[in-house]
C-alpha cells in the first residue's frame, strides 16, 4: 500500500517534471530559433523547410550587425540610457512614494488619480509637445533628453508600485527606531531601504526594461547615427513587404537580449520576492 502511494507520488512528480520541461521548451523555442538563425547563411534562412540547426554555421551575420549597423555601439548607448533612467527614476520615486505611503492627506488621492490618468495617454498624443519642450531645453538629439523622457514616463507607475512596497513595511519598525534616537534619514537608510530592496529591484527592472525596449521616442529624438539606441538600430534591418535581413537582425537581436537575460538571471530571486511583496497589502 505504502509502496503504491510512493510510486503514485513519484509518477505524479515525474509527470509534473515532464510538463514543466515541455513548458520550458515552449518558452525557450523562440530563443533557440533566434540563435540558430543568427548563425545561418542567407540560403539556409530562405528554405521552405528550414533546419533547426545551421548546416554551415557562419559569423557573417554578427559581422554585418556590428560593423555595418554599429549594434555594439547602440547596445552601449541603450545600456547607458536604461541604467541611468532606472537609477534616476528610483531616486525621485523613493522619497515621493515614502511620503505618499506614510503621510495620509487629501493630496494622496489626487496624486493617485494623476498617476492613473497619466497612464491612459497614448504616446503619439504627447510626442509633439514633448519634443517642443525638449527642443526648447536644448535636449533634442541628446541621451540626457531621452533619459528625462523615460524617467517622466516611468515615474507614475513606479511611484504607484513603490507605495505598495512601503505600506507593506510595518510602521512600528520606524517608530521603534525613532524611539531609539534614529533620525528620519537614518530610518530611511537603515530600516526602510534594506526592507524595500526587493521592491526597488522590481521597479528598477521595470524601468530598465521599459527604457531598453522603447523605440518610438528614441527614433524621433535621436538623429545622430552615433547616438541611436539598439531598438532603432535593429529596425533598420527591416525592409518592405515583410522582407528583412533576417540573419543580421537575428544576430543583433541576440546581442540585444543577452544583457536583459543576464540581469533577470542575476536578479530573479529578488524580483520574484519583490513582486510578491508588493502584491499584498496590510
Amino acid at each position: 500500500m505504502r509502496l503504491g502511494h510512493r510510486l503514485r507520488h513519484r509518477l505524479a512528480r515525474f509527470g509534473m517534471s515532464l510538463l514543466l520541461l515541455a513548458f520550458i521548451a515552449f518558452l525557450a523555442f523562440p530563443i533557440v530559433w533566434l540563435t540558430s538563425t543568427a548563425f545561418k547563411p542567407p540560403g539556409e534562412i530562405g528554405l521552405q523547410n528550414p533546419a533547426l540547426l545551421p548546416q554551415q554555421p557562419t559569423l557573417d551575420n554578427f559581422r554585418v550587425a556590428v560593423e555595418e549597423n554599429g549594434v555594439l555601439r547602440s547596445a552601449y548607448n541603450t545600456l547607458k540610457i536604461s541604467v541611468l533612467s532606472a537609477v534616476l527614476t528610483l531616486l525621485v520615486a523613493l522619497p515621493a512614494a515614502y511620503l505618499l505611503a506614510r503621510r495620509r492627506s487629501r493630496m494622496n488621492q489626487a496624486v493617485t488619480v494623476w498617476i492613473l490618468v497619466s497612464q491612459t495617454f497614448p504616446l503619439i498624443l504627447i510626442i509633439v509637445p514633448l519634443f517642443l519642450i525638449l527642443s526648447w531645453l536644448g535636449l533634442v538629439n541628446t541621451h540626457a533628453g531621452l533619459v528625462l523622457v523615460y524617467v517622466v514616463w516611468s515615474l507614475p507607475f513606479v511611484l504607484w508600485m513603490l507605495q505598495g512596497y512601503v505600506r507593506a513595511i510595518p510602521v512600528q519598525l520606524e517608530e521603534a527606531a525613532a524611539v531609539d534616537g534614529a533620525s528620519p534619514l537614518d530610518i530611511l537608510a537603515r530600516i526602510i531601504l534594506p526592507l524595500l530592496l526587493p521592491g526597488l529591484i522590481a521597479t528598477g527592472l521595470y524601468t530598465f526594461v521599459n527604457a531598453w525596449n522603447e523605440f518610438f521616442f528614441a527614433l524621433v529624438m535621436l538623429k545622430s547615427p552615433d547616438l541611436v539606441t539598439l531598438q532603432v538600430s535593429l529596425a533598420r534591418f527591416r525592409g518592405i513587404e515583410g522582407l528583412a535581413r533576417w540573419g543580421p537582425l537575428a544576430a543583433g537581436s541576440l546581442i540585444a537580449i543577452v544583457p536583459t537575460l543576464l540581469v533577470f538571471a542575476l536578479m530573479q530571486r529578488r524580483l520574484v520576492s519583490g513582486v510578491l511583496a508588493g502584491s499584498v497589502k496590510e
Binding site: 510626442i127 509633439v128 519634443f131 517642443l132 527642443s135 527614433l219 538623429k223 545622430s224 533598420r236
Partner: peptide, 24 residues
C-alpha cells in the same frame, strides 16, 4: 549626415518631425 530610418517608422518619424519643426 546620413541617417537610416526603416520603412515601417518613416511615416511617424516625418509626421512628428514636421509638427515639431525639427526636420531632416
Amino acid at each position: 549626415e546620413y541617417q537610416q530610418v526603416d520603412w515601417g517608422s518613416i511615416q511617424d518619424y516625418l509626421t512628428t518631425s514636421f509638427q515639431a519643426k525639427n526636420v531632416p
